[in-house]
């Protein structure tokens, strides 16, 4: 005898999952929402400071935009390799999943290296948290804080990826575990899309 499909209301009232997702995925999404709001507030404050600034520098004279585009390329590519890792893990192809996870971690490490070089270059040119040679002081403050906060997320992501790679190599990780690492990594990529557009291009 077939059972009628449960509606969302049935699921709530029965204490079962209304989202049709495991607790780990739901908790990861909760984290992404709250962390995303933190970045949203940060970018809102940046917009406010930019309107308040009397002289905001022309970004194309401060940054090498092709270099920033290369950083974006690395991050987007690492997101595609991570998505491929999740799919391979779901299909039970452990070795393929491991290969893609390692590639993603390498992409993250390359991004961090490029960001470190960008920071070093700007610091050499006189950029500090409270001053810079190009215009309003808040320009460099927001540059270091926004990219630094994002970079700390990338560093965390690389650590998670290395842990996931080790667990996958040893056969300890589940497809769910790889998917959670993937969700976090895509979130890091997602935030960069906003920083790249709002801070570097607009």
């Amino acid at each position: 005898m077939t059972q009628p499909a449960a509606t969302t209301i049935d699921r709530w009232s029965g204490g079962t999952c209304p989202f049709d997702a495991g607790w780990r995925k739901v908790m990861m999404w909760w984290f992404i929402i709250t962390d995303g709001l933190l970045f949203a507030g940060f970018l809102g404050a940046y917009g406010y400071a930019r309107i308040l600034a009397l002289r905001w520098p022309d970004q194309s004279t401060v940054f090498s935009l092709p270099y920033i585009a290369a950083m974006t390329f690395v991050l987007i590519t690492s997101s595609a390799t991570m998505a491929s890792a999740v799919e391979a893990a779901k299909e039970g192809k452990r070795r393929l999943a491991l290969r893609f996870i390692v590639l993603t971690a390498i992409g993250g490490a390359v991004f961090l290296g490029m960001q470190a070089y960008e920071w070093w270059h700007l610091i050499e040119e006189g950029a500090r948290l409270n001053t810079n040679p190009w215009g309003d002081a808040s320009f460099s403050a927001y540059f270091f804080l926004l990219t630094g906060f994002h970079g700390s997320h990338v560093l965390t992501g690389v650590s998670i990826l290395i842990t996931t790679a080790i667990r996958t190599a040893k056969g300890w990780s589940t497809a769910d575990g790889v998917e959670m690492a993937g969700l976090y990594w895509h979130f890091v990529d997602l935030v960069w899309v906003f920083i790249f557009t709002l801070f570097y291009l607009l």
């Binding site: 209304p18 989202f19 999404w29 899309v193």
Partner: peptide, 19 residues
């Protein structure tokens, strides 16, 4: 990125709307 990489387009509407 949200729809394809994070698989939101395959998720239940309740989760998508919550996000």
């Amino acid at each position: 990125i949200g729809a394809n990489f994070m698989h939101l387009r395959f998720e239940r509407a309740s989760l998508v709307l919550t996000v």
